[in-house]
Structures are given as structure tokens and as C-alpha cells.
Amino acid sequence: MFLYTVRRLVSLVPIVVVVMLITFTLGYFGPIDPVRAVLGEEWEDEARYAEVKKALGLDRPFLIQFLDYMGAMFGGNWGQSLSSFGGAASDRAVGEGRGAGFSGTSTGVREMVVGRLGITAQLSFWALVFLVTFAILLGVLAAVKQNTAVDYTIVTSSIIASSIPAYVIGPVLLIIFVLKIPVFKTVGGWDGMFSRQAILPAIVLAFGPMLVIVRQTRAGIVEVLGKDFVRTARAKGMPERLVVTRHMLRTAMIPVLTSMGLITSGLLTGSLFVEQIFNIPGIGKLAIQTLLSGDHAVFMGVVLFQSLIIVTVNLLTDLLYGGLDPRVTYS
């Protein structure tokens, strides 16, 4: 198991490197010239242009730049946001050289990404709370009432809930709960995870991964419905509620836990749209802002960070699967 874990971790390294290479290449050939962005109006001055280009290290060959970028990434320096330069700041770029002296300020890519991550994480936490309470309950209900109208209704409505994109559900909920039935007065923005503003976005975010959890819970429970250990539990007079929670759910949660990867990527993708609709300054909003403004260094940071989350969760899922299901062994 230990050896297996190490081997899997090592096999992640080339994937992460290629992911970096792809984002770096896209950024390198991207439409924004960082030198022009740094210089602002001054960019037509050729001598100045060359000077700043050299200071930023952009006059070096592609491969050297990439290796430098990769080394810095692994060293924890994810580069600088273009907003740290802004016109007159080119003097600073020339004076201090690439990246030097900037880390620790709020314009460092890593600080920006990590700073915004908290908000997305809080939002995702609430979404997960909704999911764990409602989706698992619905899944259990559908399984217990297997092949009845209740089952079909639950499964069909979760297909509907998860198929419709967040940017359709979001506005619909806004129109219902703000315009028609004014439950919420202020919407949009972020005011901490315990404010009322967090409720609607978290619900919208929870819609995406709902189907996966309902389906997996249902499948898991259906599989153990007729098993001997369930019959024994019933035979010894255990109340039905306890049979379901203690015996059936515990086994049925394995497929749910193993779809963690799907749930995580659902939450990450969903946060892109939810944060856009509700104007929440999380990591998804940061990605779209910087993509549209051409601040590639930050956008690349977000993409890499999300890739890292995805591969890590997938690895965790595989390892957890081995830990939870005694039939699975890794060698």
C-alpha cells in the first residue's frame, strides 16, 4: 500500500509538468504582450521596450523561460500579476528584475490564488452540506422505494437539476426568491460564510453534483438491500431507521466517496458560473477576470492549481477505495 502510494505520487509528476507546459505554451503565444502591458503608453519607445523585455526575462528562448517558470513554480513563486506593474511600475520591474522583491505583496499569483480560494472553499463547504443532507436522503429514499413512482420522480428530478447549467438555475432562483417571493433582499457580493448572501449561491452550486450523489447512494443501497447482514440486523429486532443508517449507509457510502473526483470537479466548474452570477470574489471569478483582462500569469496559476486539486482528489479516491473496500488490494 505504501509503495503503491509512492508510485502513484511519482507518476503524477510528469502529468503536472506537461499540464504546466501546456498552460505555459498557451500563455506564451497568447494575445497579450506582457511588455506592452507593463509599459502602457510608453511601449513604442524601442529602447525602453527592449530594456523592460530583458528585465522581465522575455528575451530568452522559449525552453529556458519554461524551465525557469517551472523551477519557480515548484519553488513556490508562481509569478506576478500584470496589475503589479501598471504603467509607471515598469521602473520597478527594471530595477528589481523578474519576480524579485514582489512576493509577499497581494499581487503575487500564489497569494492571489490562495487568498481567493478561501471564499470558494467556504461556498463549496455549504454546497457539500446541502448535498450530504438532501442528495443522500433522496438517494436512500429512491433505493428503499425502488421502482416506484417515488424512485422515478427522485431520479428524474435529479437528472433535471444536474443537467441545467448554473447560469440558468441561478437567475431563475434570483427571480423567484428576490422578485416574486422576496425572501432575500441583498444578493451578490460576499459577506462571510454565515451571511444570508451565501445561501442562494451555495444552493445553486449544489445542483451540479447532485445527480452523481443521488445515483451512487441509490445504487449502493439497492446493492445491499437483500444482503444477509441487513436481514440479520432486522431479524434481531433493530429499528428500520438504524438498519438503514448503521448498516446499509455505511456500505453504500463507498461508491459515493469514490465519486469524490466528479463531485470536486463539479464544484470547481460550478464555482466559475456561480461566482460570476452572484459577483463573489472567489477563485472562479478570479479566473474569468484575469482571462478576459489578459493577466495570463494569474490565470495560469488558477488553472494549474485546479489541475493539482483534480489529480490529488483522484489519487485520494483511489487510495481511499483500497482502504474502504477490503476486497481491493494494491500491489
Partner: peptide
């Protein structure tokens, strides 16, 4: 698969 697919597609289309 390791990429967040919408973000990768968005990056490719912008570039």
C-alpha cells in the same frame, strides 16, 4: 483529464 475542462477550452479559445 487533469485540466479543468471549461478553463482549458476558454484559454485555448482566447489564445
Amino acid at each position: 483529464m487533469a485540466f479543468p475542462d471549461i478553463l482549458l477550452a476558454a484559454f485555448i479559445s482566447v489564445v
